[in-house]
Design a protein around this nucleic acid. Structure first.
Lengths: 197, 197
DNA sequence: ACGTTTGTAGGACAACGTTCTACACCAGGA
DNA sequence: TCCTGGTGTAGAACGTTGTCCTACAAACGT
């Protein structure tokens, strides 16, 4: 224990990163079902025992992968340069969907049924909260500039997140029963802007 | 094959129902991770091989459980007696959340990452479509009576489903970052009515 | 009443997560 | 310089999972 010391006592911290890299590759290639300890260790070129030395167990490894996923989601939803508050919110929503469609396995693992029981780690909750805060900031930006009706930014952000996550989740699950998923998503974003103005 | 014949050749179709009953009990008791073929067979009092005789493999069994779940969801969202179209839509949304909170394991399994790959069965798609149609009917009811802006009922229903599912999904995952999840859900329903009027 | 077909029971196999045991390596004292 | 202590690794091993194979019991058609 006392691993957080400044000594840097771990001579091969790089193995940790290599394992997470390998886990991401395996996840993308073989899906969540193919994400086994042996497969990840083989992909990283280490023994399966390395996973338990570095992350405790398999859940620790997938928690690390999920943490990266939340970071990527936060980065994707933050990469907007528009000054217009409405355009910024729209870009945020579109980037959210783009990230999910570009990394479906990550997204499914992040918000799948594993979150409620397999990984209630405090670190993961912090990452999710950071991604959520990025949205809260954009909502507050919109409220300050009159694009959104004034109110509790966190409550409004939670409302937007619910709708956007639901649309993306259903689309990834093949449950968009309308002809054009992209058009339905755009209609959802427009309805959100209408209902919150 | 040719199982659909009228002969009723299966002398113990009851075993099929007993297996699904047992699977539901195990799912509620031990969660999705505890839903193993052996546990379900033991709970039903039959040999594990019975699962493969009746359902082909484990996925077939869980597909049967999920089909029941979709039926229950359709029944829950349809049990409204209000004549007022707005009240009927609100009841539909509240019943949706009530079902999900009452059967969290079912809901998680129905919409989790298993749907995209583990169970793209035509039967399941039909059940999901039936539950969706119940919502489409209520949307059309609201449009005909002026509670909702006229338009494509399926598109509007998809939009509502996205938002409602997202809110429920985040709540089950413990990702409602506002103090009162019920209040946030009510705000979401109200925003939907506002944005679609 | 017999032969065929159907479903069951139990054991067996590969793969999984996890743990145990023995070995190689790197730092410090004589 | 050698020796000692501790850290991480490699490989085998255990229990459990999904799935399949083989032998046996029961039910239907003639």
């Amino acid at each position: 224990m006392t691993e957080g010391s400044a000594g840097g006592r771990t001579p091969s911290r790089a193995v940790e990163q290599a394992l997470v890299d390998a886990a991401e590759r395996v996840l993308v290639r073989d899906g969540l079902g193919g994400l086994t300890v042996r497969a990840v260790a083989a992909e990283a070129g280490v023994a399966p025992m390395g996973v338990y030395n570095r992350f405790g167990n398999k859940d620790g490894l997938v928690a690390a992968v999920l943490a990266r996923g939340f970071d990527g989601l936060a980065a994707a939803t933050s990469e907007d340069t528009d000054v217009d508050p409405t355009a910024r919110l729209l870009a945020c929503g579109r980037n959210y969907r783009r990230f999910a469609l570009a990394h479906p396995q990550h997204y499914g693992a992040m918000f799948g049924p594993g979150l409620s029981q397999a990984a209630p780690t405090a670190e993961l909750a912090d990452r999710a909260d950071a991604a959520f805060t990025a949205l809260v900031d954009r909502v507050r930006y919109g409220m300050d500039r009159g694009a959104l009706r004034p109110g509790d930014p966190r409550g409004t952000a939670q409302l937007i997140w619910s709708s956007v996550h639901g649309a993306v989740s259903l689309e990834l699950g093949g449950l968009v029963l309308t002809p054009d998923a992209a058009a339905s998503y755009e209609a959802l974003l427009q309805m959100l802007l209408d209902g919150l103005r």
